[in-house]
Design a protein around this nucleic acid. Sequence first.
DNA 1: TATATTTGAAACAGATTGGTTTCATAATAA
DNA 2: TTATTATGAAACCAATCTGTTTCAAATATA
Lengths: 104, 104
Amino acid sequence: MRRDVFQAIADPTRRAILLLIALQAMTPNAIAGHFDTSRQAVSKHLRILTECQLVKQKHSGREIFYQLNPGKMKEIDKWLEQFRKIWENRFIELDKVLSTLKNN
Amino acid sequence: MRRDVFQAIADPTRRAILLLIALQAMTPNAIAGHFDTSRQAVSKHLRILTECQLVKQKHSGREIFYQLNPGKMKEIDKWLEQFRKIWENRFIELDKVLSTLKNN
DNA sequence: TATATTTGAAACAGATTGGTTTCATAATAA
DNA sequence: TTATTATGAAACCAATCTGTTTCAAATATA
């Protein structure tokens, strides 16, 4: 069972769930109401999202509200950051080429 | 066959390949040399990465060099951006709370 | 030309995934 | 208390995924 953030966001329904609960915590039933899948299917998605800590639970009576854990989203951002550095380096190199051309 | 960038980066080997060829274009054989999997397995990963346009091919005789397509990486960045906006909004709201406390 | 190298692709096997059905548990309402 | 509601979890199935084996095609070398 792979349960990392990258595997978690690979599924389009899970990405939609993350966006849905980003602004407001919601119960599994409420979330399921926004999709064509069953409550049980949503529940399984929520389990995966919870296990990799992309969402957090907040119990309230018999209801469970799920909300985004923004901190964990930064793990994806961190991974992307490596590539951003590469792009930036290329831009610096491009700048060098351009200034060399300018001086000649 | 789902072939979007999110499904592509779900596999750890594929993420490692992306990092490996980010700085320098490489052939499938050279890439396979860096991992424990076979050349054929790497070839399949490269096919998936190529199909979703995360990498580009550059033919040179019988060799094929694979290189990162940084532009496509931005699709992931774009998706993350939605959440960054949410975080920023929260920070703005937090600022409001703090300044209200200050004035009282 | 004959041989070796580099690669992609198809066929197959085992593991994983996403969804449904069913059941158990806990909290609320009548 | 009894019935209803909200939820998680287990069993199961079809589809998909990753890796291996095998083969074919194209390019380079002896």
